[in-house]
């Protein structure tokens, strides 16, 4: 987990200066959102918390509700 946090801090150190230098608020907000989402998912995975795959929702929807499958 510590490795993960270090990796994300390094990522921030690489990207953030250019994002701030760019000066556009929109890019900064988008970067913040994508970074937070990515970090959250990776953290959940590192903590071994079960994240349901979106493809499994599709699988259940097709098999149990639509009854569409070979």
């Amino acid at each position: 987990m510590i490795i993960l946090i270090i990796v994300f801090i390094i990522m921030l150190m690489i990207d953030l200066p250019s994002v701030i230098r760019n000066g556009k608020k929109k890019i900064l907000i988008a970067y913040g959102l994508i970074f937070t989402f990515s970090f959250t998912i990776c953290l959940l995975l590192a903590l071994e918390i079960n994240i349901k795959s979106p493809l499994m929702f599709v699988d259940e929807f097709y098999k149990n509700i639509l009854h569409f499958s070979y």
Binding site: D15, I27, I34, F37, S38, F39, I41, C42
Partner: peptide, 9 residues
């Protein structure tokens, strides 16, 4: 700027 966070994702 999105390359690395998206790669992690």
């Amino acid at each position: 700027p999105f390359i690395l966070p998206v790669a992690a994702l």
